[in-house]
Each structure stands twice: as C-alpha cells, then as structure tokens.
Write a protein that binds this DNA or RNA. Structure first.
Lengths: 204, 204
DNA sequence: GTCTATATGGCGATAGAC
DNA sequence: GTCTATCGCCATATAGAC
C-alpha cells in the first residue's frame, strides 16, 4: 500500500532533518545533506515538505515540545517546594545531558526568528505565570526567602542550560580539551545546582 | 594622503562587519549587506580582507577581547571574596546589557567552529585555573562554604549571560512581549544575582 | 512516489577600467 | 584605492520521465 511507503519516507526525512538541523541550524544546513542522511533524493524533500522553511518548522516544533516538558506535573503536586525544585532541576538536566544539542538549537533559532517562537509556544500548555504564582505562595508561607519569582525560574533554567550550551567553551577553558572531564562535571552538576539553589532560597 | 583614506575605509568596514556579523552570525551574514552598511562596494571588502572568513575572524577576535575582561584585576586584589564576586557580576552584567549581542554571537560561533576558539583564547591572558585556585583558598580560610570552584564560576557566568542570550524567549514567555519590562528586569537583576550567589555560598 | 535533469537565483570572489 | 561587470559555484526549487 502507498501509505506505508509514504509514512516510512516521511519518517526518514523527519529524522534526517532533525539530525542535520540540530547540528547546523537552519542557515548552516543544506537540503542535500538532509537527503543524504535520509538515503533519498533531494527532490523528495520538496515533494513532502515543499520548502526548506516548512521542513525546518516541523523540526522546530518537535524540538520545542521536548524542551518544554510537562510543567503542569511539576507544578500541581503537594510535595514541598525544595523537593519540587530539586526534582525539576534533576529531571531537566538529565534531559539536556541526553539531548545536548537542544539548548543551542533553540537559542540560535529564537534569535534568528523570534516571531515564530511566540506562536509555537502558546500551543504548548506551558504557562510560566502559574509557576510564578506558586513560588509566591511559598514565600507567603515563609518556606523560602523573598525573591522575584521570575529571577528564581530564570536561575533554575540558566544554571541547567548554560553549561550544556557552552560546552565547547567550557571544554577548552576549564578542562583543557578533555571531554571526559567535562562529562563527569556535568553529571555531578545535577546535584551541585540543586544544592546551590536551595542553599540560596531556603530559610535556615 | 593615501593612508588616511585607507584607515577611514578599513575602519568603516570593521564597524559595518561588526554590526552585521553580530546580528546574524557568520553563516547568516552577506558580504553585500556589510558593504551596504559601510556605504561602499562589495569588491572593496575583498580588497581589504581578501575573504569573508578573514573578515569574520577579525571581528571575532575583537568581540572576544571585549567579552573576556581583565580577569586579573578582578582576581589580584585584597578585597574580601563577597565584594569581589559582587563587583564582577555587576561589572559583567553591565557590559552585557550595553552589548546584548555578545553572548549569542560567541555561543553561536564557538559551536560552529570550536577549533579557532582555543587559539584566540590563549592570547587573552585569561586563566580560569587561577580563579579556581583563589576560590579554593577562600574555602580553606572558611570564608565561603565548600563548592566545586568550577561550579561557582560557571554559576556566575550562567546567571549573568543566560538572560541576555535568551532575551527573545524571555520577552515572549515571561513578559508578554513587553520589552520595557524585560529591560527593567535585567537592570534589577544585577542586584538579585549578586544576592542569590552570596546567599548560597556565604557562611552565616 | 521516486528519480534525473534543469531552471533560477544568490553568493563569494576576481578582472580590469579609472 | 575604488568602482562596474562578470565568473563560477552552489543552493533551493521545479519539470517531467518512469
């Protein structure tokens, strides 16, 4: 049947595009390279996705969906704030370690085309303002010290994302080009970031 | 005299290239656009810098020099550690606020071509290992709690750099597209980051 | 649906007049 | 030193056979 063939090819294209786009970004990627990676012909890419732009958008959405994980689940539970934050940092850094190209991919493209970002994000069910509100509540209850909730969330993200995005810089400057050292640093960091944050906001 | 004309043009080219490269990166920039920005002809770019690559490298070095400020001065002084760290964060964030394109520019290019990074960095007189050593000393003296000094420096950088690099993302997600709100958040953040770090590492 | 061949346009780079 | 004109290449995209 035709649909089977179609699904296979479309799937192969999506996977190949993902591989190439995430490594080189929209500007740096070539349709030919994607075709090679998929083991098919360049013309087929256009047959399935018409333009490079449209193919890219498909991948962009797919990656954003992975990068903004179910924040609801992290938010709506009755566990104490310090457990919540710790779990989020740990889970999120684990995701980034497994998918180290996500941060740079998103950072690059949101700077290249900020407009298309807003559209995609609204379809995600991610609402930071709810997170801010839940932080405020914990401050009111006296469980953590007063801090701008936006700063707190930005700090959580920054501490998790930056060392992954800046891997080449860090490997050169901090680890004398030894990748293994960088990797074990990052693995250990799941704990140190958690400690660093909680040390700062918990009231002792 | 010829040299005057030459210096003027070369200077104009460098400024134009800086403007364009920093906004769109190496891949996204066009020689034609740089020529327009400089108010000159495309051929003249090649006359002065031969290739796009060489022109880019000139800008890259220039930006790196700005982005890695005199870390010596920050390091070799007898002021207490909490003042030192506070001053660094404040000075560095001020630099980034004045030059908001620096973080993305560097992040993008170090991922595109990590090799050329090491070479340039070594010529900068920046030695992170000395910073690590000075952190260790403060821990030995009991002035700050024990923490991997690499984590501490990464945290200082991450908290300062990330919100600048992720401006479009934050403006959309946290500030409902209101740029003014983002700006005042960033201005205020010079203090909140300082507090956040010191709260975490100072022994109370 | 998949391929080969080609159209079309843009880009970096060079030749050559002034 | 600066310009116009153009080369040669490579990338996206399409036409058309199978």
């Amino acid at each position: 049947m035709d649909n089977i063939k179609k699904d296979n090819t479309e799937q192969k294209i999506l996977e190949a595009a993902h591989t190439v786009f995430i490594r080189k970004g929209m500007d740096g990627s070539r349709m030919q390279e994607i075709a090679n990676e998929a083991g098919i012909n360049k013309a087929l890419l256009h047959y399935y996705f018409r333009t490079k732009q449209k193919l890219f958008e498909a991948i962009f959405k797919q990656v954003l969906n992975k990068a903004f994980p179910g924040i609801k689940e992290f938010l709506y539970s009755d566990i104490p704030i310090e457990i919540k934050i710790g779990a989020f940092v740990e889970k999120y850094m684990e995701l980034l370690i497994q998918n180290p190209f996500i941060p740079m991919f998103i950072l690059k493209e949101i700077n290249r085309d900020p407009e298309s970002l807003a559209a995609v994000i609204k379809n995600q069910g991610v609402n930071p303002h709810e997170v801010f509100a839940s932080f405020e509540k914990e401050m009111d209850k006296g469980n953590i010290r007063r801090i701008n909730p936006k700063d707190l969330l930005v700090n959580m993200l920054a501490l998790s994302i930056f060392p992954v995005a800046a891997k080449p810089l860090m490997t050169v400057m901090f680890f004398d080009n030894n990748e293994e050292d960088y990797k074990s640093f990052l693995a250990e960091r799941k704990n140190t970031v958690k400690e660093f944050i909680l040390n700062s906001i918990l009231i002792k």
